[in-house]
């Protein structure tokens, strides 16, 4: 039996003057003990709603969920004694110091003040916040806030950790730092459910990825399995001038085994049967048609390709570029 299990979760909202939104539309999920599962999907796919149901913040309209056999809907108080949650908005008290925030959380877990103090000290150390621990959080950088928030989720050393877009909005360096922390937690055997819209993040941290779109899991597997399911090699051409897009699209369509797609405005990708041969012919064709290339190469499918294939649209903000190029 999986450590964390969600079955057929449905949650609908009715915004004023708008049709019903099915935030969760029969979402099911299984997370084995000691593993990291990533929920991967664009904004509005239902990732945060899933986490909110599992962390007892909202009740689904229907469906069920258990954590280590405890029914999340029937026994939320017991669930709250075994989870830690850290969200994309660092939920810390701005006016309290880092240390005071952790103390407060420990006290609210009813650890007793001696244990709460000891644990806060440990976490400050672990998250490298010793220097800032006695300053109010309002003076912290974005990365430090996330760290203190994540530390708050770890106060009781929970067996299950929920990380809702832990690195959204962070600069690359802070992101890398947070990834290293999460990796060290995972190596200790904590069961983690992570949501992210960054394919790279899921690829790096997760044992298993559930791709979700419109409130449902549309695919799941390891990063490699998902990439393999899309299959084969790709040829990618980056043009110098965006106006050459149509020409490149035509060339790739003739040599590829699928529909060419554009990412980032100027890079066109198509699945091919024989990578090296296809690459040679498309470069030759581009040269013959006078299309200036910035870059040309073969690549393995990425999770971006997986997402695109499964949902028909690109993850993250590149939505617009596909729209305009199509």
């Amino acid at each position: 039996m999986p450590f964390l299990e969600a079955s057929e979760l449905v949650k609908t909202y009715t915004p004023k003057g708008a049709p019903v939104v099915r935030a969760l539309d029969g979402l099911s999920l299984e997370v084995p003990q000691g593993t990291v599962t990533a929920l991967l999907g664009p904004n509005g796919a239902g990732k945060t709603t899933t986490v909110k149901v599992l962390t007892t913040l909202i009740r689904p309209d229907s469906g069920s969920a258990t954590i280590d056999g405890v029914d999340v809907l029937a026994d939320p108080d017991r669930v709250r004694r075994m989870i830690g949650a850290s969200g994309q908005y660092a939920a810390v008290d701005e006016n309290l110091t880092g240390f005071e925030n952790l103390m407060m959380v420990g006290r609210l877990y009813h650890l007793g003040s001696r244990v709460a103090r000891q644990r806060a000290t440990e976490l400050i150390e672990l998250f490298d916040l010793a220097e800032a621990q006695n300053r109010p959080v309002k003076g912290y950088s974005g990365g430090m806030r996330r760290r203190i928030d994540l530390a708050g989720a770890l106060v009781i050393r929970p067996p299950v950790l929920f990380l809702d877009e832990p690195t959204t909005g962070l600069d690359p360096r802070s992101r890398l730092g947070l990834w290293e922390i999460i990796e060290s937690l995972v190596s200790d055997g904590t069961t983690v459910l992570l949501t992210t819209q960054y394919l790279e993040e899921a690829d790096r941290l997760a044992d298993s990825i559930s791709v979700i779109d419109e409130g449902r899991v549309i695919a799941k597997g390891t990063a490699d399995e998902l990439k393999a399911s899309v299959g084969g090699q790709r040829v990618a051409l980056t043009v110098v001038d965006e106006a050459d897009g149509d020409a490149v699209r035509g060339i790739l369509a003739r040599h590829g085994t699928g529909e060419p797609v554009v990412t980032g405005g100027r890079t066109w990708v198509v699945p091919v049967a024989d990578g090296p041969a296809a690459l040679a012919s498309v470069v030759a064709a581009a040269s013959a048609e006078g299309v200036a290339l910035h870059d040309a190469g073969m690549r393995r499918p990425t999770l971006d390709d997986v997402f695109l294939q499964l949902t028909g649209h690109v993850a993250e903000e590149s939505d617009e570029t596909t729209g305009s190029a199509a």
């Binding site: 075994m82 877990y109 007793g112 050393r157 067996p159 190596s187 200790d188 904590t190």
Partner: peptide
């Protein structure tokens, strides 16, 4: 939690309320 001895989290088990 047997790996990473000086790292935290798993090594001592979940803290119970007083």
């Amino acid at each position: 939690g047997t790996t990473a001895p000086e790292s935290d989290s798993g090594a001592h088990g979940t803290l119970e309320p007083a």
